[in-house]
């Protein structure tokens, strides 16, 4: 199971329709595939290529540039600990060592039970709350060793399933443009004149 599901194909077509060029939907569709399977499979890349009019090699060429896309299974929970300056000043290196010890894996490694993958991350834009980490892109701020312990315990016991979805899901809510409200994509070749509201008059 790694081509996009029927439901995802419908959604993929809706997303593609928002862009003047289908290829612009490539990154959103890669996220969709990762949400479906937990990582990006070869079949999914072939399928995305078919949907946006690119070869699977082109899809891989784009996908491989971006760190969030994984091409083999990772843990259910991806734990990214920030190591950039503000976090380094506030003890992120100690936190990383502690996390390696707690989970029994090195940075980049996955626990044997497939629950956790540990990664060193760069700036997560939460610098006043250092040191910080993200679990599947959900923040934890000013993390102490004790905080890390309870986080891992809570995740292991399934106590945070409402807050933190399994790896692959980033945003749990997507955009929906109602059919009767949307303008639709504006492809460059279909437009030669100025927008109608540039008529020198007030619109209201």
């Amino acid at each position: 199971m790694s081509r996009l599901s029927e439901g995802n194909i419908r959604l993929a077509k809706e997303i593609i329709g928002r862009y003047p060029r289908p290829r612009s939907a490539m990154i959103p569709l890669l996220h969709m595939a990762q949400q479906q399977d937990g990582y990006i499979t070869n079949d999914a890349m072939v399928h995305i290529g078919e949907l946006v009019g690119s070869t699977s090699a082109e899809v891989y060429g784009t996908a491989s540039f971006y760190e969030m896309f994984k091409f083999e299974p990772v843990g259910k929970y991806l734990v990214n600990i920030c190591g950039t300056l503000s976090c380094a000043l506030m003890g992120s290196e100690e936190l990383m060592h502690y996390a390696e010890h707690k989970l029994g894996v090195k940075m980049g490694g996955t626990t044997d039970d497939g629950m956790f993958t540990l990664e060193h991350a760069e700036c997560q834009a939460a610098c006043t709350e250092a040191p910080c980490l993200q679990v599947n892109y959900r923040y934890r701020f000013r993390v102490t060793a004790a905080d890390f312990d309870s986080l891992i315990d809570d995740l292991s016991a399934g106590r945070l399933v409402d807050e933190i979805p399994a790896h692959g899901t980033v945003a749990r809510v997507g955009q929906h443009i109602p059919r009767d409200r949307g303008v639709g994509a504006i492809p460059p070749e279909s437009v030669t004149e100025a927008p109608v509201w540039l008529d020198g008059k007030a619109a209201l």
């Binding site: 928002r18 862009y19 612009s24 990154i27 959103p28 890669l30 996220h31 996908a63 540039f65 971006y66 760190e67 969030m68 896309f69 760069e122 700036c123 980033v170 945003a171 997507g174 955009q175 929906h176 443009i177 109602p178 009767d180 409200r181 949307g182 303008v183 639709g184 994509a185 504006i186 109608v196 509201w197 619109a203 209201l204």
Partner: peptide, 29 residues
């Protein structure tokens, strides 16, 4: 905002129409 008529076709009943499309990245400074 779409449902309330602030984005999309004929915003606030005028001839000003524009879509805002949410797009997102995948990690790359």
């Amino acid at each position: 905002a779409y449902a309330a008529g602030y984005i999309g076709k004929n915003i606030l009943g005028t001839h000003f129409s524009v879509d805002i499309v949410l797009h997102w990245g995948a990690g790359a400074y």
